[in-house]
Computed example of a mutant assay.
Amino acid sequence: MPTYIALHNHRKEGSQTIKQLPERLEQATEIAHSMDCDVEYYLTNGQYDSAVIVDAPDERTAKQLALGVTSTGTVTTEFQRAFHESELEDLTNGIPTP
């Protein structure tokens, strides 16, 4: 399955209800599982408040999950495809040479 990384920042509404974060995370995980996605959640220090690793069946499903999470109004999301090191050789073999 393709892997994606979602980098989140808490919006004002999310920060004001931060104690509800465990429940929101549980709900988001249940939704992810219902979409055949696996998720790993990490609180982070630095520029982003959290990072989520998402394994999804395809890009469309992954994006739908990200849009659903963002639609709650509690976080903003920067969402991107991540390539595992096991994919490196295949990717580099496809680089055209001048």
Score class of each variant (00 low, 15 high):
Thr76Ser: 15
Thr74Ala: 09
Tyr42Cys: 09
Gln47Pro: 07
Thr72Pro: 00
Thr61Cys: 08
Ala66Leu: 01
Arg81Asp: 00
Arg11Lys: 15
Gly73Leu: 02
Gly14Thr: 02
Glu89Phe: 06
Glu78Tyr: 09
Asn45Tyr: 13
Ala56Ser: 14
Leu91Asp: 03
Glu87His: 00
Ala6Met: 04
Gly94Val: 08
Val75Lys: 00
Ala66Ser: 11
Thr72Asp: 07
Ile31Tyr: 05
Asn45Met: 13
Ser71Pro: 03
Gly46Pro: 02
Thr72Gln: 07
Glu40Arg: 12
Gln80Asp: 07
Phe79Ile: 04
Met35Phe: 06
Gly46Lys: 02
Pro98Ala: 12
Ala82Ile: 00
Thr92Tyr: 15
Gly46Arg: 03
Thr61Asp: 08
Leu21Gln: 14
Gln64Phe: 05
Arg11Phe: 06
Thr29Ser: 14
Thr17Lys: 11
Gln16Asn: 15
Lys63Gly: 05
Gln27Ala: 12
Leu67Lys: 07
Pro57Phe: 04
Gln47Glu: 15
Thr92Ser: 11
Gln80Glu: 10
Gln20Asn: 15
Gly14Gln: 01
Asp90Ile: 04
Thr77Met: 11
Asp49Val: 03
Thr44Ala: 13
Lys12Met: 05
Tyr41Met: 08
Leu65Asp: 00
Leu21Ile: 09
Ser71Asp: 13
Val39Asp: 01
Thr92Val: 15
Asp90Thr: 06
Thr97Pro: 05
Glu59Gly: 15
Gly73Pro: 00
Asp49Met: 03
Gln27Pro: 03
Ser50Ile: 01
Ser34Phe: 05
Ile18Tyr: 13
Ser71Lys: 12
Asp38Ile: 07
Glu59Asn: 08
Ala62His: 01
Asn93Glu: 13
Pro57Thr: 08
Gly68Trp: 02
Phe83His: 10
Glu40Cys: 09
Gln27Ile: 08
Gln64Gly: 02
Thr70Gln: 11
Gly94Arg: 14
Glu87Val: 00
Glu59Met: 09
Arg11Thr: 15
Leu43Pro: 04
Thr97Glu: 14
Thr44Trp: 08
Pro96Thr: 10
Thr74Asn: 11
Leu7Met: 12
Thr70Asp: 08
His10Asp: 14
Ala32Tyr: 02
His84Arg: 07
Asp90Gly: 05
Thr77Ser: 11
Leu91Asn: 04
